[in-house]
Write a protein that binds this DNA or RNA. Structure first.
Length: 105
DNA sequence: CAATTGACGGGTG
DNA sequence: GCACCCGCCAATT
């Protein structure tokens, strides 16, 4: 059984692999890292932000940004070409881990 | 050790 | 959209 540190290390590996304009959900990061249903652990890692990772490319599974209306996240995403309306990501491919686009005007 | 707390996710009405 | 509900799991109290 991998330790919690190992798990977080895997999370980081996935996070740093995200490309510019690529958006994924917390659950996606956990699953791709090999730890399904560890979405909360991903959020906890980012809340601690112990490492240099593109945290702004991680949103909720429904496309909403972080719990609080962090204007910075929206700004960073827009700077990468991601369409953001209010606290929601729209017309985003949600990275290479999500096929659905939930495209809406 | 029990309860609470989150940058979560899905379901129901 | 809103209000609740439950499951989940590491850290904190």
């Amino acid at each position: 059984m991998p330790s919690a540190a190992e798990m977080e290390q895997r999370f980081v590996a996935v996070l740093v692999s995200l490309q510019r304009g690529e958006v994924v959900s917390y659950g996606d990061v956990a699953e791709v890292a090999g730890y399904p249903r560890r979405s909360r652990a991903v959020g906890r890692l980012l809340s601690a932000s112990p490492v240099d990772v593109p945290w702004w490319r991680v949103v909720r599974s429904d496309g909403r940004l972080a719990t609080t209306p962090w204007s910075e996240q929206a700004a960073l995403l827009r700077s990468e070409g991601v369409l953001v309306r209010g606290d929601r990501v729209v017309a985003s491919p949600l990275g290479r881990f999500r096929r659905e686009a939930a495209v809406d005007g």
